[in-house]
Design a protein around this nucleic acid. Structure first.
Length: 346
DNA sequence: TATACGTGGAA
DNA sequence: TTTCCAAGTAT
């Protein structure tokens, strides 16, 4: 049987030897900067460490603290986030920074419940910040912890139903002291040892306590409910060129790619919509190469429609220099389309 | 509880 | 090529 009391000492001893050095992590024995801890946690939501590292460095160089971020230009923030995905995170980052300045005297709240009231801080992030930045005991459960704990206690119920039991078990193994190190140790273990496929159980500091390992096939845990098939949609992207400029629009704040600069598109529907939703009247030239892109809940194929060198008046949007398109902050979907056009292979 | 919400890397 | 999935949150 797994002894809950044995887990934290084993894991923390392992962490002291094997912890990863990450830009947002304090050196051992020093205090982490709450701003950096929070920013890193938000960037890391559903996003890999490798993708976050360079973005984190660039962000803190530009906006090093709550005050600077609270005063940031919204379009700059969204463009700086471009390519990271889940764009509501960027909008919520600014909103939370404003709330810290306006409602909390410029100091980040230190308790989980108050942190939870800030936009973009859910159960996981509030607990992680309370533990990592402020040393509070908090039950920190992310996908790594779910996997480690499901295996440690051989919890066989499938997610998401198993979350209640997993959280209770995590509570039982979380220590009063070093709660932040414990949370990060669980995540390092999940990332490097207790991996989704082919976990390195022989190297695991918890293997003697692990019911999943003892029972065999720990890689099968946690079980997950079967997911539905992703639908496929079709749409048209409009490339409207006037001299050396191209027409960009800003997408509505709510919804997919909300608030992001973008190329104009028509509706995204079950069958190819041709020129529905064109931003101007023009002689459109349809390109042969489609842009394919996968979102979390659907795949899409987009046809490119091009209008060049025609007079376009009273257009709602910005004329953006094509040579500076890299700086427009386009989401990946539109960056792909622009690249296809500019390669002239479309 | 279920669904919307991005992206890129690994296998 | 396809599938999985990564430090989740909001509604």
């Amino acid at each position: 049987m797994t002894n809950p009391q044995a887990v934290a000492p084993l894991l923390l001893a392992w962490y002291d030897r094997h912890r990863r050095a990450l830009p947002w992590r304090a050196l051992p024995g020093t205090t982490a900067d709450p701003y950096r801890v929070w920013l890193s946690e938000v960037m890391l939501q559903q996003t890999t460490v490798a993708a976050v590292k360079p973005r984190f460095e660039a962000w803190v160089a530009r906006w090093p603290d709550f005050a600077s971020l609270a005063a940031a230009d919204d379009a700059d923030v969204m463009a700086t986030w471009a390519g990271l995905g889940y764009y509501a995170r960027a909008r919520n980052l600014v909103a939370a920074a404003k709330a810290v300045v306006a409602d909390h005297g410029g100091a980040f709240p230190t308790d989980e419940a108050t942190l939870r009231t800030l936009p973009g801080l859910g159960a996981y992030t509030a607990a992680a910040v309370a533990a990592i930045a402020f040393g509070r005991r908090a039950v920190v459960v992310d996908a790594n912890v779910e996997r480690v704990v499901a295996r440690l206690f051989a919890i066989r119920d499938p997610l998401p139903g198993a979350r209640v039991a997993i959280r209770a078990a995590t509570d039982r193994v979380t220590p009063d002291a070093r709660a932040g190190d414990f949370a990060q140790a669980m995540m390092d273990l999940g990332s490097g040892i207790c991996t989704p496929r082919a976990p390195s159980c022989l190297l695991c500091p918890l293997n003697a306590e692990c019911a999943g390992y003892r029972q065999g096939a720990p890689e099968r845990l946690p079980a997950k409910a079967t997911k539905k098939a992703k639908p496929r949609r079709y749409g048209t992207i409009f490339w409207v060129q006037r001299g050396d400029d191209v027409l960009l629009v800003r997408r509505p704040d709510k919804g997919l790619l909300g608030g992001m600069r973008a190329l104009p598109t028509g509706p995204w529907v079950e069958v190819a919509p041709a020129l529905d939703g064109a931003p101007v009247d023009a002689e459109w030239a349809m390109r042969n190469v489609a842009v394919s892109h996968g979102f979390t809940h659907f795949d899409i194929e987009l046809t490119l429609a091009v209008a060049m060198g025609q007079a376009h008046h009273a257009v709602d949007g910005e004329w953006w220099p094509i040579a500076d398109l890299d700086r427009a902050g386009l989401p990946t979907l539109f960056a792909k389309a622009a690249a296809a056009i500019l390669r002239r292979d479309a």
